[in-house]
């Protein structure tokens, strides 16, 4: 990424950005909110999996995920077109249709990415039909509890675990709708890893990963 400062135009506003950085980052830094879940700095390649950060870029027929667009001089972007909002709302509704709403008991309450986005996109938090998976909590990991029906499968924790440990412990398992987070067995022997687990838990935007009771920790 070069140090060239360039100008892009987002919703009619001129923003300064570094050439080549992700459009999403430039917009967020410039005070323009774009819904997002899976984006984290420093991951290469980016997952581009939550499919929420769509924007309309002039010259492209379809909305594109802004985290996958490197900014260049004179880029003209609209974040609030009907097509963009329709896709974002649909994506968020899909995520909520598998989400167990129990905000009062959730550690992410009031700083939850889903809550923020429902307010921003004006989508109801509780859809008519909700498909939940069983069992709701998986606790085979020695230090982590995993709340299956809170998880949005953004993959942030997987990426952190991959980056911080030479032997990653988290991965996706199963296929299709049944995809969840899984733990490789036999890990977690090293108490130093706890730092990584804390980082995973902090990175979770929805409170799906929580550390087990402190008395169980080493």
């Amino acid at each position: 990424m070069s140090e060239n400062r360039i100008t892009i135009f987002v919703d009619g506003k001129a923003l300064k950005a570094r050439e080549g950085e992700p459009l999403l980052k430039a917009c967020l830094a410039g005070g323009i909110f774009i819904p997002n879940l899976c984006y984290m700095e420093g991951i290469d390649p980016l997952p581009v999996s939550c499919r929420l950060c769509f924007v309309a870029v002039e010259g492209r027929a379809q909305p594109v995920p802004s985290c996958s667009i490197p900014v260049r001089e004179g880029l003209v972007v609209h974040t609030d077109t009907p097509e963009v909002r329709r896709l974002q709302r649909q994506g968020l509704r899909l995520l909520l249709s598998t989400h167990h709403v129990e905000c009062a008991r959730c550690p992410a309450n009031r700083h939850c990415a889903l809550q923020d986005m429902t307010r921003f996109l004006k989508v109801g938090l509780k859809p008519k039909t909700v498909y939940l998976k069983a069992p709701p909590v998986r606790s085979e990991h020695p230090f982590l509890d995993y709340h299956v029906n809170r998880c949005v499968l953004c993959g942030r924790c997987v990426e952190i675990c991959k980056a911080r440990q030479d032997r990653p412990e988290l991965t996706f398992i199963k296929r299709g709708f049944d995809t969840t987070l899984g733990f490789f067995p036999g890990g977690a022997s090293n108490p130093q890893d706890l730092k990584t687990y804390r980082a995973c838990v902090e990175a979770c935007p929805v409170g799906a990963l929580v550390l087990k009771d402190s008395n169980k920790n080493p």
């Binding site: 999996s49 939550c50 649909q90 899909l94 949005v152 199963k174 299709g176 995809t179």
Partner: peptide, 17 residues
């Protein structure tokens, strides 16, 4: 749906619905 890798929201949940 069964062969979706589960990575992105629309394919994982959308095809299920």
């Amino acid at each position: 749906q069964k062969e979706s890798c589960g990575k992105c929201t629309f394919c994982r949940i959308g095809t299920h619905h």
